[in-house]
Design a protein around this nucleic acid. Structure first.
Lengths: 179, 179
DNA sequence: AGGTGCACTGCACCTCGTTGCATAGGTACG
DNA sequence: CGTACCTATGCAACGAGGTGCAGTGCACCT
């Protein structure tokens, strides 16, 4: 799966401990690929055994020791191999669609409330992404390399959330009309 | 999780066996909520034990016997309860985003090929959805009730795929410009 | 003095979902 | 006649991912 490779990407950009990776996933990468610390620790160990990363125990003052991970040549090779390998195309899997289909049985009003909730949440995410865009990538036309790639991923998130919000509006409008 | 409830919705629309449900999931519902037959069988049994569905063994000629499931009152109540309950907001989780972020390490060309593959796949799905829309819902303005809800779910799929295709195009354009 | 929160790693357990296989008769194709 | 696929159900095993909990020690607040 892709968690290994998401970690490899993150570690390539900057080395770090399991804990630090979990923080990073909570922020930037996790918007597109969420992961708990547990999973990260487990996968890190597996990758260590597979030789994709190496670790150094780092003693700290006032804090527990940590293991700082670094991508090895094997890890970089694996990343390159994986990128070229044809992967599964993502599918949307949203329980809101199921609820919508069940509206005739369970009540249109309850579904409308859920749609409103989801719309608000997606709108919030959209604002967060747009904030990142304005702050970190004010001039998209001048970007290249790694920054351009990060920007394009963010664009995907923005497009997805925009599309979601618009869908919620379409649903709300259509359902309120007939009620 | 929502698989139980997706099955309840499907069974409410029409009773059926596990096998039939698996077929249905392969077609309409599975576009938005994929499930293997294994999972469906297991969940059906669990729902049977919970009293959400009942089953009748039906002997067939030339074919194995089948268990036809029917939603009980308990199942309908559970569905109504679930719809009103606030659920998790869907997150996008696409390995293509991870690959894009890794482009500087693994090669922009390989990523561009993957993006092209994904674009083609999403465009195909979009065509399928648009075909369903044209065939089953030629006059959206006249819809109401269950048909309207089904139509709106389909609209969500169309919007998501459109948004995906557009993103792939944006990525391709941006990456080809700088190379 | 005591509580809360952060930093850091990890175990144990659970659910969700997939894959491979087994069984067993039926039809359809070459 | 063999092969392959369809209907129909199910077991066994595994991988992915999540939750809860545990331990340790510092910093900061009350």
């Amino acid at each position: 799966m892709a968690l290994e490779h998401a970690i490899l990407v993150s570690l390539t950009e900057r080395t770090g401990s399991g804990y630090e990776l979990a923080r990073r996933f909570d922020r930037s990468i996790g918007y597109f690929w969420p992961a708990t610390h547990q999973q990260i620790y487990r996968v890190l160990r597996r990758m260590d055994e597979a030789g994709w990363v190496t670790h150094t125990e780092v003693a700290q003052e006032g804090r527990p020791d940590k293991k700082v991970y670094r991508v090895s040549d094997g890890g970089r090779a694996e990343l390159a191999r994986w990128i070229a390998e044809p992967g599964e195309v993502a599918i949307l899997r949203d329980a809101l669609g199921v609820k919508l289909r069940a509206a005739s049985i369970g009540g249109v009003d309850a579904v409308l409330r859920e749609v409103a909730r989801h719309r608000a949440e997606h709108a919030t995410r959209l604002e967060v992404y747009r904030g990142i865009q304005a702050k970190d990538f004010p001039k998209p036309a001048t970007l290249n390399g790694r920054e351009l790639h990060q920007y394009l991923v963010l664009r995907g998130g923005i497009r997805a959330e925009e599309s979601f919000v618009a869908w919620c509006d379409e649903v709300t409008e259509a359902l309120e009309e007939t009620s």
